[in-house]
């Protein structure tokens, strides 16, 4: 029973982080139509910034907030400096087909990933670092009994829950949130309604960037920090997004949790080596049974 509970709590905490990663991916996919392969590069870079601040004696919370702001700014920069200019390039006929238009930003995001990893290697000499957690990452002891979860698990779940509630309120209750949803669903009608879709797009990048940073900060304490240490998380987060349905925000959260549980239970009941096999099987099953993801919308034919 204790093993089960340990796997459950660990799965919830990991799943919460994957949910944030998937949320970041889904936001940019819906807002800009781009699969952002640079996302965990952004997370790695801002986690290094936080790490450097902490090592220089600043408090964890200051570093935490600065990393989130840096993540938001990095997201905005990617849109302004790379994606927006790219979407305006119409010079060559060969680059103007819809297939190329969808491919170019993806290649650009891979380029950004490479750039961020190279820059991190230059700034921080590629050193592997540990990263602190604000609370203990060992098993929590309450009234003399070892609990099946750690204080950091609770911290992670609480902060992710808070972020998800705030995000959902933002999208449901504010005008800007409505503008973002409308733009994602039908850009033409959104424009005709006076919504400035360029601003909406940059906002998607900003929120996604901050979310990625948060994911980096929450993952780093239980792994090491190196320029490429978060690459695998992107694959897991992407699986979570696809499992949930790439165009659904609640789906991203659900997908994150499902993947988190799969990983955790495989890890506890079998061995860590089987984790990626399990993820692959999960992805295959979902794609076969529900190609649009658990909560993804069916392609509605528009007249």
């Amino acid at each position: 029973m204790n093993l089960f509970l340990s796997a459950f709590f660990s799965g919830t905490a990991r799943g919460a982080i994957y949910a944030i990663v998937a949320l970041g991916l889904v936001l940019v996919w819906r807002g800009a139509g781009i699969i952002n392969f640079a996302q965990m590069g952004q997370a790695m870079f801002t986690t290094y910034i936080a790490s450097t601040l902490i090592i220089s004696g600043k408090s964890y919370w200051l570093a935490f907030v600065i990393a989130l702001i840096a993540g938001a700014m990095l997201g905005a920069l990617i849109d302004i400096l790379v994606m927006r200019p790219l979407s305006r390039v119409h010079r060559a006929e060969a680059l103007n087909s819809p297939a190329m238009k969808a491919t170019i930003p993806v290649i650009a995001s891979l380029g950004i990933l490479g750039l961020l990893q190279a820059l991190a290697g230059m700034f921080w000499v590629g050193q592997e670092r540990g990263f602190p957690a604000p609370v203990a990452i060992e098993g929590l002891i309450v009234a003399g009994r070892k609990m099946p979860f750690t204080a950091f698990d609770i911290f992670t779940i609480a902060i992710v829950a808070l972020v998800l509630v705030l995000t959902s309120l933002f999208f449901r209750k504010t005008g800007t949130g409505l503008a973002m949803r409308a733009t994602a669903l039908n850009q033409e009608v959104a424009k005709l309604s006076g919504i400035r879709t360029t601003q909406v797009r940059i906002l998607s990048w900003i929120i996604s960037g901050a979310a990625s940073s948060l994911a980096g900060l929450l993952i780093a304490p239980s792994s090491i920090l190196s320029p490429s240490s978060l690459d695998l998380i992107l694959i897991i987060g992407f699986t979570a997004a696809v499992v949930g349905g790439l165009d659904s925000l609640p789906g991203a959260v659900l997908g994150g949790l499902i993947v988190g549980y799969v990983i955790s239970f495989v890890n506890f009941y079998r061995s860590p080596e089987d984790i990626f096999l399990a993820i692959l099987i999960l992805l295959l099953v979902v794609l076969l049974v529900r190609p649009n993801g658990v909560m993804g919308s069916k392609q509605v034919r528009r007249v």
Partner: peptide, 28 residues
């Protein structure tokens, strides 16, 4: 100058109230 394009252009995934609110967003 407001344009109502062909084919009853509304956003099907949003509610009626949200569609109407969307039209006035820029004046909020």
């Amino acid at each position: 100058v407001a344009h109502v394009p062909e084919g009853h252009a509304v956003i099907s995934e949003l509610t009626v109230a949200e569609n109407i609110a969307m039209g006035g967003l820029f004046r909020r």
